[in-house]
Simulated scan of single mutants.
Amino acid sequence: MAAEAERERLAAAMRLAEQESRVFELSVGPVTPLRSFNRVIHAREQPAPEPRQREADERAVLLQALSDEIDIDTLLDTDETLSFRRDGIGVEVVRKLRRGHWSLQAQLDLHGLRRDAAREALSSFVHDSARRGLRCVRVVHGKGHGSPGREPVLKGRVRRWLVQKNEVLAFVQARASDGGAGALIVLLSGTA
């Protein structure tokens, strides 16, 4: 009896294996296999990949890169508080900016950041603020009291970096109530 049960089990397993191997044929009906053409298919050599996206990203970074080496002294209006305005922006705009005509819509505080981190943070902040349609923002760079030699490290650099950003129309030193010599009020184009 055990041998007969074993034969039946093996026969059932073979029927199941054949059904599984013919599952497609059993699902769709009778099939006719395609003729074999005895072809040799050669693998084509793929061209070397071109890093187009990386190159585009690098070009974009170079366009947005901010330099510490730019001389902005000729671009700044020399008055009691250094200010900047792009060509085509009237003096009245700078006066309004200085008087607080526009309400502050966002702020970036660079206290405690090293130069490279501050540059990246400022670039992102200006770009994102302009993209969101913000017109007036404050950038707090500090007065330098915590810096070595108590000399401001970021103050001049922030001005250089802002001048290089196309989204920046003008900036002035903040009023005493808005941060004084440790901050800038920046007018943005509102579109990026």
Rank of each mutant, 00 (worst) to 15 (best):
F24E: 11
L162G: 04
H101Q: 12
G182F: 13
V139I: 15
G133T: 08
G149T: 06
A2N: 13
K155V: 03
V93M: 07
G90P: 07
G180R: 11
V31D: 02
D178A: 11
R135G: 05
V139F: 11
P148L: 07
A48E: 13
V140H: 09
D87R: 11
A181E: 14
G182P: 00
V23R: 14
L97T: 03
G100I: 02
A117K: 15
D87A: 10
D68Y: 01
K96M: 12
R15H: 13
I72P: 03
Q107C: 10
S83F: 02
V168E: 03
L108D: 02
S147R: 06
V168M: 06
G149S: 00
H127E: 12
Q164F: 05
A43G: 07
A5H: 10
P148F: 10
P148V: 06
A13V: 09
L97Q: 02
L26R: 15
L188R: 04
A174L: 01
A2K: 12
V31E: 07
E151V: 15
P30E: 14
A174T: 04
L26W: 02
A130N: 13
R44I: 09
V61W: 15
L188M: 07
R95Y: 09
E167Y: 03
E92M: 06
G100W: 06
A12H: 11
L76D: 01
R35E: 10
I89H: 04
A65W: 14
R7M: 13
L188P: 03
S147W: 04
Q105W: 02
Q107I: 04
H111I: 04
P51S: 13
G182D: 08
A5F: 08
D178S: 08
E151N: 09
K143G: 06
K143S: 08
L16Q: 08
P51F: 12
D73S: 14
E18V: 10
S177Y: 08
P33D: 11
Q173H: 10
F24C: 09
A3Y: 07
D71F: 06
L108H: 02
N38D: 14
A121W: 05
L26H: 06
F24I: 12
V137C: 10
T81C: 14
S129E: 09
A56Q: 15
A121T: 05
V28R: 04
V158I: 09
G144V: 03
L108F: 07
Q46E: 12
E8H: 12
A118L: 01
E92V: 11
